[in-house]
Write a protein that binds this DNA or RNA. Structure first.
Lengths: 264, 264
DNA sequence: TATAAACATGCATAAACATGCATTGCAAAT
DNA sequence: ATTTGCAATGCATGTTTATGCATGTTTATA
């Protein structure tokens, strides 16, 4: 990334960098920017004020958001979806601590998590999804381990014996298996037998398991069981999930984390 | 980098040097330039003022930035020569036959090749680049095998012992090793020692080797040799390459394929 | 409602900048 | 040989810009 010299950047260069980051990441946080550029938060705020005055971004409490929201009906829906997933991802990454080893599965939600992970945090990410790997390559300060194997087109990641064998040689702190379906009573489910085996291997290779699920995954089941609810330690759900469902999940012993509400 | 005479340079030479540095580094700092040329900052500022007046750069507090939407070095490279790379890729895929197994390395040129491969052609693609894998996942009718291992951030692909071991278990028909530098006399070269080893393994695992090189890769050398010219069977080059260079390459025994001219 | 974080504002300081002027080196004109 | 003209430079001057800190205010969250 364009990060020629994160430290000691020219003022204008900084603003340009902020704009790029707004485009690619969808938001910036004042504190993080101050840390990145080694300047005071005041300087960052002044930058954001200028950019906002030029109509290049929208200032919000804590940082700034892009203003380019030129959205066609189709893109808008995709964006809304993206917004919700990003909110989930932001909440999910609060469970990540410095110098941990993460095991990240395929899926658009997990891609959002990869994009939301803090840079230069000493994180090691093991993944079988080219998608996730690609996102992290474009960012900085990650140790990336790619799990190889035959790629299932419909899933978009390496599954099968080879991949499972590679995963068995890994020990991770945190695991993010993509959820196909999750139910307070019956646990985590998948639609594909091979995929279920792989997710199972991921969970077994990790200390803790975090399931991040959009609303439509909740309360439904699929064909192949991945894990019981007792093997899932954290569950991150959307803000809009109703109280009854939340209660049932909590009762099943998992720690439930509720994402922030999305503006849209 | 062309450093004709860092010290004691003529004013025009200095300005030329500044422009080059703007292209390659994305910015210049007045203080640094003054130090480099052993002139006062005033002289440097005058240079920058002139260049800016000619529309060749944008002056900012502390130095100057390139005019053409400064982007991330990586992203820049990815987008810059898109047209030319697509022309190369179109020519390269004419070498591919039905039901073959291809071994594709990392790099923007190889990504273009992946995008140009014919769908539902019975092709099996083995790659160590998440980038290439992702492109093929979004398309149809490919058997994809992902090579795992530790990912080198600067290269954007899995290299190292694990990846080489996996490649050794493969037999491919055609191999597309990314070219860092290629020379009629000295063969194929790379800038990274590990990367060179991996490319070497790829070539050894393949029946035929196809090198696809943009113009700037020709006639130059790098630090680590990947293969001699006798191990390269096909070379795909741009239309604009001059007759003399083409002759030298043909004389070295490789079959030279010339891409169509690009409109731009 | 209490609290902490994020924010705005004014001010002091240092760096970067513009401008005018004197000096230097060199080539063409005298 | 001397002078003139010109471009390039460095220095001194005053101005602008960027920044950090201290102050008081607003905002978000428990």
């Amino acid at each position: 990334m364009t990060t020629p010299t994160p430290d000691e950047a020219l003022p204008r260069e900084r603003q340009q960098w902020i704009l790029e980051r707004l485009r690619s990441h969808g938001r910036v946080v004042s504190v993080e920017l101050a840390q990145t550029f080694r300047v005071s938060e005041d300087a960052v705020r002044r930058d954001l004020r200028e950019l906002a005055a030029q109509g290049l971004c929208k200032r919000v409490y804590g940082g700034a958001l892009p203003l380019s929201a030129a959205s066609t009906p189709l893109k808008q829906r995709r964006q809304e979806h993206a917004e919700r997933k990003m909110a989930l991802a932001r909440k999910a990454v609060t469970l990540v601590r410095q110098d941990q080893v993460l095991l990240i599965d395929a899926g658009s939600t997990n891609a959002a998590i990869a994009a939301a992970l803090p840079e230069n945090f000493g994180l090691t990410v093991v993944t079988n999804a080219p998608d996730v790997a690609r996102i992290l390559i474009d960012r900085e300060g990650f140790e990336i381990l790619l799990i190889g194997g035959r790629i299932h087109a419909g899933i978009g990641a390496a599954i099968g014996a080879q991949a499972i064998k590679d995963i068995r040689r890994i020990r991770a702190d945190l695991c993010f298996p993509g959820a196909c379906a999750i139910d307070a009573e019956h646990g985590l489910w998948s639609f594909d037998s091979e995929e279920a085996l792989l997710k199972r291997a991921m969970i077994e290779a990790s200390g803790e398991t975090v399931v991040v699920a959009t609303q439509d995954k909740l309360g439904s089941a699929a064909t192949y069981q991945v894990a019981g609810m007792d093997e899932v330690h954290h569950l991150v759900i959307e803000h809009a999930v109703d109280r009854a469902t939340r209660g049932a999940l909590t009762a099943s012993g998992v720690t439930v984390h509720r994402a922030d509400a999305v503006s849209g």
